[in-house]
């Protein structure tokens, strides 16, 4: 059970949160211009790696805000939490 530091409310139990899949997959601005394959890439393709992963989380039972999390899936270590709209770390 993670202890997640909501960037707005502070440290809370994982039960207050919902995971929202991979982060930084932006919805295409002009979907109609895309081929089936390009749209499928956006719609379906997600990474599932052992190691450092960028994820979206929502403080669903608190402030309801979404934020980003960098998590190592091999040991569940949360390496970084940052707000929506902020740039992901490069390292």
């Amino acid at each position: 059970m993670f202890l997640i530091n909501c960037p707005f409310c502070g440290e809370r139990d994982q039960s207050e949160f919902k995971a929202g899949g991979e982060a930084h997959i932006e919805r295409p601005k002009q979907p109609t211009e895309l081929s089936d394959d390009q749209w499928a890439e956006y719609l379906f393709m997600r990474k599932n790696i052992k190691g450092v992963q960028f994820e979206r989380w929502n403080h669903a039972h608190g402030c309801r805000k979404w934020f980003n999390m960098v998590r190592d899936t091999s040991n569940d270590e949360i390496k970084l939490i940052y707000k929506m709209g902020e740039k992901p770390p490069t390292e």
Partner: peptide
């Protein structure tokens, strides 16, 4: 509600 909030916060801020 959750889905609509998601779009407002992340895709269409």
């Amino acid at each position: 509600l959750g889905k609509l909030e998601d779009y407002l916060q992340t895709e269409w801020p």
